[in-house]
Design a protein around this nucleic acid. Sequence first.
DNA 1: GTTAGTCATGGTACTTAGTATCATTAATAT
DNA 2: ATATTAATGATACTAAGTACCATGACTAAC
Lengths: 144, 144
Amino acid sequence: MTNEQVVRPNIMAVLEDRGYRSTNSRRSIVHILEDKGSGFTAEEIGRELPSVGRATIFRTLKLLLEMGVICRLNLPDGPPKYSLSRVEHHHHTVCVVCGNVGEFRAATIERLMRTLSNEIPGDVIGHRIELYITCDLCSKENTN
Amino acid sequence: MTNEQVVRPNIMAVLEDRGYRSTNSRRSIVHILEDKGSGFTAEEIGRELPSVGRATIFRTLKLLLEMGVICRLNLPDGPPKYSLSRVEHHHHTVCVVCGNVGEFRAATIERLMRTLSNEIPGDVIGHRIELYITCDLCSKENTN
DNA sequence: GTTAGTCATGGTACTTAGTATCATTAATAT
DNA sequence: ATATTAATGATACTAAGTACCATGACTAAC
């Protein structure tokens, strides 16, 4: 696991580079994403931007997903959560108590996946790894 | 990756051992699950059992999920798919073309996860790994 | 085997994440 | 400044799943 500086792209610039327009709604959604960083739901964003239509929120999230700027995480229960992606490939931790989402990188996993792909029938083109944890905060609260 | 014989529990027995009743609906649902094995959707089961109420299908799937008899797999798109679990811990491959779901085991992964948990903040209590592949059948069809 | 109690069922209405449609509005290119 | 076209918000819809509730089916105890 590494802890190097997280490099994030200028999201609006990425959108514009792909020919998408820089609109008020998109800017305010992106602004909130950058503020929250990780573990936010679509509904949450909608609540903070009542002037922006629900459809637009989902449309924008979908766009950003396709561009790889954010990722969606399906939790065992509750609505899916979105997180800003690192530029680099990464994986997620989810606290099963509070639902907080974290990110980590581990070169060992990637090396292992390459090895594994020899033993899997078919061509491995991607993978997704989620670690379910109880985060430090939640285990502390439990012992109090 | 291992290929040993898949050991499956007697699902109805497991249900009854937990105090749940052996009803017609449950038996017919379980029967279909055992027939399909993996990669089926809730809707699919409902279609094959028009006499069983939709609610009952979801109720039963939920029960089986809680008991660990089946697992739910959220695909990048399309409805979630359910699979009979092996008794043993395992992971899934999903073909991104046809959506077929496979299972595999890899002790290396489990060992790696244990190592990794030292580097992750909080207590790791579980993990989920999905490999996205194009299965042999689909890559063949593409080259034809 | 009958019965009593309770669990499970099917039907229906609801919730929630996300999408389709469409007339109006705003961003861009010229 | 204007024409073009993309994006928007509103609304209605779909689809996975759940809540509710009166009726029916299991099981246990007799």
